[in-house]
Design a protein around this nucleic acid. Sequence first.
DNA 1: CGTCGCATTGATATCGCTCAAATCCGGTGG
DNA 2: CCACCGGATTTGAGCGATATCAATGCGACG
Lengths: 209, 209
Amino acid sequence: MNGAGATWLGEAFGAAGKVQTVPAGELLFRLGDVPAALYLVLEGEARARRFSPDGAEILMQRSRAGELFAEAGLVAPRYSCEAFCPLITTILRIPLAEVRARIANDGEFALRFAQFQAVAMRRQCARYERLRLKRAADRVLHYLNCELTGPAGATLALDIPLAEWADDLGLEPETLYRTLAELEKKGLIQREPRGRRIRIAGAAAACGG
Amino acid sequence: MNGAGATWLGEAFGAAGKVQTVPAGELLFRLGDVPAALYLVLEGEARARRFSPDGAEILMQRSRAGELFAEAGLVAPRYSCEAFCPLITTILRIPLAEVRARIANDGEFALRFAQFQAVAMRRQCARYERLRLKRAADRVLHYLNCELTGPAGATLALDIPLAEWADDLGLEPETLYRTLAELEKKGLIQREPRGRRIRIAGAAAACGG
DNA sequence: CGTCGCATTGATATCGCTCAAATCCGGTGG
DNA sequence: CCACCGGATTTGAGCGATATCAATGCGACG
């Protein structure tokens, strides 16, 4: 859905944009680079990290397929950070000048781009609000409610390992696991043994943090 | 700075936009309303809340001066939420149709609007990353580093009560206070007794979470 | 069959939250 | 000018939730 939403961006820049397949760990750009392009993640995932003086990694932002990397792309990166791809990732690189020209001259494109940005904002706001919730259970419910567009009782297939999901929620894997077990005991969700699939009970939708 | 950044938006819609002064607590719109306008906060602050079935308030999003309320404005609100203003707030209401027409037909405007959205996104990303930090001290440092644009050693004047700030950081006021005391003891910051002013030591900039 | 990665489970440590109270400060009215 | 009041800050003590550390189970894969 994310990917589909941004497909048009890729198509719009078929010529100007440059698709790159980036092996895991490769650096896309560094802090201090003059922002010269928009990076749209097509497949895989890109991450921005920041290092403290002692070398410890202190924070990370993840950009999924369909998202611009990192942040909005039109502004200079805020961080003393490095960007890289820990997974095999496909990136569409669009020169900023191209984007600007297009926005200024193509009304239809400008509208769609604004919409694209708005959707991205909505997603980011959802993530923010999720982390504002202090209890693990609330975060999980919030996540489920956001990801699940269908009617209550629908099933959510988890294609990511538990640790990834926990990271999304700002939790440790163990905590997430225990929380899921707790929610199941309360009857708010049901999960398959190996944890690859979760069904949300109707009640859970209302609780949704 | 936020306000200044969005001034152009207000000016651009001098005629079409409608400035409203909203008394504290008044509802701007409700969930389910068809999104028909952009709400730009000019002064004060607007908040979006969401209620659980039992009536408890479970989360809140705050929009400051210069920000669109809530989220990006071009998409339908995601939430079962109500929006209201607990403070005296000035709002600029711009019909969506106007905005869309302007984006489509005025290249210059479209560019500035895209930039505006990008800046908003950057701000939201910063808030998100701040909450990803688990330790209180890291959040405080991150906040200081983001708010402080000047060189290290600059002074940050706090015009908000401690409780507000704590809320921004996803902390309780007591925790924030103790954390500040701790940071001062470590020499990373210096604060005036009444807590209305904070000076950041050079070292703190590097730690900045 | 062995190993590896990940899920699961248990025990403990730690941090921030909660409740409670004292203090400080600005403002207000006498 | 001074006493009082109300709100915010400051400080204290204890609790609870989550992180952390450690170990085991389980399935996939070579």
